Simulated assay, not measured.
Amino acid sequence: MTETLFDVPAAPVIPVAGEAAGFPVHRIFCVGRNYAAHAAEMGHEVDREAPFYFTKPASAIVLSGAETPYAPGTEDLHHEVEFVIAIGAPAFRVSVEDAPSAVFGYAVGVDMTRRDLQQQARVKGRPWDFGKAFENSAIISEITRAAEFGEIGPQRIWLKVGEETKQDQKLSDLVWSVPEVVSHLSGYYHLLPGDLIYTGTPSGVGPVQPGDVLTGGVDGLAPIELRIGPPE
């Protein structure tokens, strides 16, 4: 059967630095509590046995430079800047040593979070979907190829709200490294080109308000910018 009853939105496409062709988004995985200081500020310890994840729909993608409405259903919308892995080759049950071969490149992301809804779900033992998986909640910069970014180490990751720096750490503070995350996640999913992995946020997360301008970056990557618009 080839005919469909209706059309659905096409996959979002992310620009790639210096290239005409873009990166189509398939799925979005997000690592939870991957910086010890952030876990502590949220009242938790890092689970050092294995990383854990939540997901967002591809429809959550927003390109840097956009204005998005203040998210519906929340009174406590938070910013979380993240280092993002873009998968460019199939990966299933890959070793830590082989995991880098599946990486296409990297970007800067912001995981917008309806913190009040996330906290309510946590207290009740419910999934985090209302708090995490909503439209306009996965902001992303253009992607830089992995070979051009080089080795991951002491690069700074930061975010400002207006002129005030809110988050500021280094990629070396990640609890689970990029190869470890890709290897572990590939044990549960057939990772495919177009998949994105948001690797977790440093400490300093906090609320935003309509009118706020968020800027952020990772050394060696294109910066990210977002304006928070009024509620719909």
Rank of each mutant, 00 (worst) to 15 (best):
F54I: 00
F54W: 13
T55M: 04
T55H: 02
T55V: 01
T55A: 02
T55L: 08
K56V: 04
K56G: 04
K56P: 00
K56W: 09
K56N: 02
S59H: 05
A60D: 04
I61F: 08
I61S: 07
I61E: 02
I61Y: 01
L63Q: 06
L63M: 13
S64Y: 04
G65F: 10
T68Q: 08
P69Y: 13
Y70W: 11
Y70A: 03
H78R: 08
H79T: 03
H79C: 10
V81S: 01
V81Q: 02
V81P: 06
E82R: 13
E82I: 15
F83P: 03
F83H: 08
V84Y: 07
I85K: 02
I85D: 04
I85L: 13
A86H: 09
A89T: 12
A89G: 12
P90E: 13
P90A: 09
A91F: 13
A91Q: 12
A91K: 11
R93H: 12
R93V: 10
R93N: 15
V94T: 13
S95N: 09
V96Q: 13
V96T: 11
E97T: 14
D98K: 15
A99P: 11
P100S: 06
A102T: 07
V103H: 06
V103T: 01
V103D: 07
G105Q: 08
G105F: 05
G105W: 00
G105M: 03
A107R: 01
A107V: 09
V108W: 01
V108E: 01
